[in-house]
Design a protein around this nucleic acid. Structure first.
Lengths: 207, 207
DNA sequence: TGATTATGAAACGGTCCCGTTGCGTATCGA
DNA sequence: TCGATACGCAACGGGACCGTTTCATAATCA
């Protein structure tokens, strides 16, 4: 295989270069199918190729197996918007939960979250990737919000940040998953945050 | 089709009766495969028949489709042990979370939970069945515990029970799913319950 | 005994997908 | 122009599973 030097000094093989467009449409098709509820194990290369308007060979030339492709597809997901600093920590937390709630309305996000939740057993690399891309950045943002509250005194100084994050996120996901569809859930973020802030015990000074 | 009356007056078809043993082993095989991480969509009738040591015909004679079979299989899952009344509400809640934690250690339970979480989109009947069998009874038990605490004054009188349940269960599942494997998690139930009881705000009377 | 139904095994034709190969065409550098 | 590589397309042999049918055998009752 002959190569040549580009201006940047990057080695480049001779012949027709790979199509960036094809690559993008393959990844887009993958995300589309996952977003329609197709699980990783049911996802077929042929369906991706067909959806992307691409030959199977073009896919096999780039990825040696399905998992690699899905990992790369997940990697193109945009990280969430940085959380704006609201007036109070309570406001920021409500905003955070509202983002989760809003995302879970879109098929695409919800199905990809399902994949992360359920296929983590059989696809640890996928789960790890999802962790880096979706879980960790949110953890960092909310963690900062909570720390700010601990400094200003709006929150307990000895608050366990990971535990607080788990309570908030876990409750949001739980309720989204298991509450009856008929229930109005517009105020879910506020209710979760307020309940978590107050705690379950009575407050002697306020009762 | 000729029928005959049994002593109990139940109409019964002539000929060889269906094997109870075959039926049980089919359901057991189904649960085994699901417990090994096979998703509902990948679950094949042939693999069930093979595992159960049974002909495919025997399965098709009883269930017209895969989903019906899985629904019946889920129905054989034992409801959870009623929660013993400990000394305090805190103890009972810790016990409850410990049961969840313990269950999620067993492959079988964990995988079935995964199915409930992820396949609920495409199999609403399965999700509903799981709700009845696994979610609702727990909700009832914890709900009773929380109400007791509200009466005795150990908990706030205006506590939102559904919200409290979501915070506790959601946090447990979230942490089980996303915390690093290396973390010691033996005291997770205690930490979750205590954090939820205290709430995030500082307590003026105790600080 | 004979009628009736169930059972496990095997085979059927059909569908979907696998991963690979060959083909004619398109796009690059030399 | 030529060599090299990528492209979309179609076809390949092979495997898994579908849902059905056939068959010899087993269990039940009249």
């Amino acid at each position: 295989m002959k190569t040549q030097q580009t201006a940047e000094g990057v080695a480049r093989p001779a012949g027709r270069p790979r199509s960036e467009k094809a690559e993008r449409s393959i990844i887009e098709a993958t995300l589309e199918l996952l977003g329609e509820g197709i699980g990783v194990s049911e996802l077929s290369i042929e369906s991706i190729a067909s959806r992307a308007g691409v030959g199977k060979t073009t896919i096999y030339r780039r990825w040696s197996n399905k998992e690699d492709l899905v990992v790369d597809a997940l990697a193109t997901l945009k990280p969430p918007i940085p959380l704006p600093q609201g007036a109070t920590v309570r406001d920021d937390l409500v905003t955070y939960l509202r983002v989760i709630q809003e995302e879970s309305r879109h098929h695409r996000t919800r199905c990809i979250m399902n994949i992360a939740m359920s296929d983590s057993e059989r696809h640890p690399r996928l789960a790890e990737r999802f962790r880096e891309l979706a879980v960790e950045p949110r953890r960092a943002v909310v963690s900062a919000v909570l720390r700010r509250g601990m400094e200003t005194g709006e929150l307990r100084a000895d608050l366990d940040i990971d535990m607080a994050l788990a309570l908030l996120s876990g409750a949001m996901i739980w309720l989204t998953k298991w509450s009856h569809a008929g229930d109005s859930q517009a105020d879910l973020p506020e209710r979760i945050v307020d309940e978590a802030l107050k705690g379950f015990r009575p407050r002697p000074s306020e009762s």
